[in-house]
Design a protein around this nucleic acid. Structure first.
Lengths: 248, 248
DNA sequence: GTTATCGGCTGACGTTACGTCAGCCGCAAG
DNA sequence: CTTGCGGCTGACGTAACGTCAGCCGATAAC
C-alpha cells in the first residue's frame, strides 16, 4: 500500500509537520506505521481521517471534540449544535465588550462634562480638589450653592442621613434581597432624591450610575461602605444601576 | 497610612488572591510593602491602581497592554481604539464561523441543498431519478455498487475529500487562475479520479461534462458550491469541460 | 571513504491569565 | 504545646501548536 511520510502529507493537505506530530501525540491521528528513526508513515485511511479532521477544524471545533466525533462517541449534529450555542454566546459577549469599549472611547474623546462621574458626598477639602479635577468647577459650584442654601440643621444631618440609608441597605443585603428588588429600589429612590438635593439638580441616569461606579472604584469610599457591611458598595451600585435603568 | 493585606483587598475588590500574586509576579501591581513571611500590604495608591486595572480588564484588554497604559507608555485612547478593531475582527470571524456551522447543521438535518453528505449516502430518491435520466440505469447501479464496496472509513471521508477539493479550487479561483490553467487542471484531474472511484468507472467526456452541467444547472448543487466560494460551480464546470476536452 | 546536507525526530519552552493543589511558615487561640 | 487560620512559594494544567536546539539516518558530493 502506498504510504506518505510527513513532508508529503504537508504538501498534500497544508497542515504543518508540527501539527501532525501534535495530532499523533494526543492520539487524534496516528500514523499507520513508524519506521526506523521514528519516521511516520501515513496510509490512505489516515489521509481520509485527516480530511475529516480539517473539515471539523474549519468549523472551529476543538480537537478533543473532533476526536470524539471520529470515534463515534459523539454525534456530529449534537456536537455542532452545542458548538453553535457556544459561538452565539461568545458573540454576545463580544458585542457587549465592543459596546462598552466604544462608549469608553467616546467618553475619552468627548467633553469632560459629559463624563458621568459625579460625587459630592465628600464635602470636605480633601475631596473637593479631586472633585473639581474630575468633574469640573461648574458642577461642584452648583452643589456648593445647593448645600449652602440648606438650613443648618439639614446640613448637619447630611452624614447621619447617609448613614441611615447605608444601614437600611445593609439590612436588606443581609436578608439576601437582590439589588433590583422592590424593597431595595425603594431605599435607592430615597438615596437618589437625597443626592438630588445635595447636587442641586436631579442626576441624569449617566451621572447617577457614575456615582455608583465611583463608590466601587475609589477604595476610600469602598472602605467607608465596608465599615457598614462588607460588599455594600457593590450592592448599592447594583441598586443604583437598576434604578437608573428603570426610572431615569 | 492605612494598609490592606491580601484577604482584605480580596473582599474590597473581588479579585482573587491568586490574581493579586499574579499581578505582583508580572509587575503589574506590586504591594506597597512586603512584611515578614512575605506578607503583601497594599496602600491607597495600590488600590487605586488596582481599580484602574479592573476597569480596563472589564473592557477585555490584555494585562500587558494595561500595564503599558498605566505606565504612560501607551495612550488610553490609542489602546482602546486598537482593541475595538480587534474586537470587530473577532466578531466577524465568529459570525462567519457561526454561519458555516449553521449551514452544516441544516445539511445534516435533511436539507434543500445537494451536499457531499447526501450525494452518495445512497442516492436519495429525488436525485436518483435525475441521475438515471442523465446517465442511465447501468451507471447509477454501478456507482451504487462501487460506493457500497468501499470501506466504512472511505465512505465516511467522502464529504471531507470533496470539501478539500473544493477548497483547493477556491484558492486557485481567488488567485485569479483561469479554469484551463495547468494548476487548476491538476486539481480537476484529482476530482475526476475521485469521481471515477465513486462511479465505479472512469467517466466518459460526455458523462463528466454532464456532471459539470448539473453543478451549474441545479440550484441545489450550485448553492453548495457557493457556500465555499461564489461562482465556484461555474469555475469547476469550466475546468471539467477543459479537462474532458483535453484528456477524454 | 568521508563529509556536508537534507529531512525527520524528540524534547522543551513560550503563549494567556490565572485555578488548583501541595507543602511550608508565622502567629494566635485553646 | 498543638491546632488552625491565613499567607506564601513553587509547580502543573489549560489549547494548539510555533519555534528552536540538538541528535540521527540516508543520500549526494568530494
Amino acid at each position: 500500500m502506498r504510504m506518505w511520510q510527513t513532508s508529503e502529507v504537508v504538501k498534500l493537505t497544508g497542515v504543518s509537520a508540527r501539527a501532525l506530530r501534535h495530532y499523533d501525540a494526543i492520539g487524534l491521528l496516528e500514523p499507520a506505521e513508524v519506521g526506523r528513526g521514528g519516521i511516520r508513515r501515513y496510509g490512505r485511511a489516515e489521509l481520509l481521517r485527516l480530511q475529516q479532521i480539517l473539515l471539523f477544524k474549519r468549523l472551529g471545533l476543538r480537537l478533543d471534540v473532533i476526536a470524539e466525533i471520529l470515534e463515534g462517541e459523539l454525534a456530529e449534529v449534537v456536537a455542532l449544535e452545542r458548538h453553535a450555542e457556544q459561538l452565539a454566546g461568545e458573540r454576545e459577549r463580544l458585542d457587549r465588550l465592543a459596546a462598552t469599549v466604544d462608549a469608553t472611547i467616546r467618553q475619552l474623546e468627548g467633553d469632560q462634562k459629559m463624563t458621568p462621574e459625579t460625587w459630592f458626598e465628600g464635602l470636605n477639602d480633601e475631596y473637593e480638589a479631586e472633585a473639581r479635577r474630575r468633574w469640573g468647577d461648574a458642577a461642584v459650584d452648583a452643589s456648593d450653592t445647593a448645600v449652602k442654601a440648606m438650613t443648618d440643621e439639614e446640613r448637619r444631618a447630611i452624614p447621619a442621613r447617609f448613614e441611615a440609608l447605608h444601614r437600611r441597605l445593609a439590612e436588606l443585603k443581609e436578608a439576601g434581597k437582590a439589588a433590583d428588588t422592590e424593597e431595595v429600589q425603594t431605599v435607592v429612590a430615597d438615596h437618589y432624591a437625597f443626592m438630588a438635593s445635595i447636587w442641586g439638580t436631579a442626576p441624569t441616569a449617566e451621572a447617577y450610575k457614575g456615582l455608583g461606579a465611583l463608590y466601587t472604584e475609589d477604595p476610600a469610599f469602598t472602605a467607608t461602605f465596608d465599615d457598614v457591611a462588607t460588599g455594600l458598595a457593590v450592592y448599592l451600585r447594583e441598586g443604583m444601576d437598576a434604578y437608573a435603568d428603570a426610572n431615569l
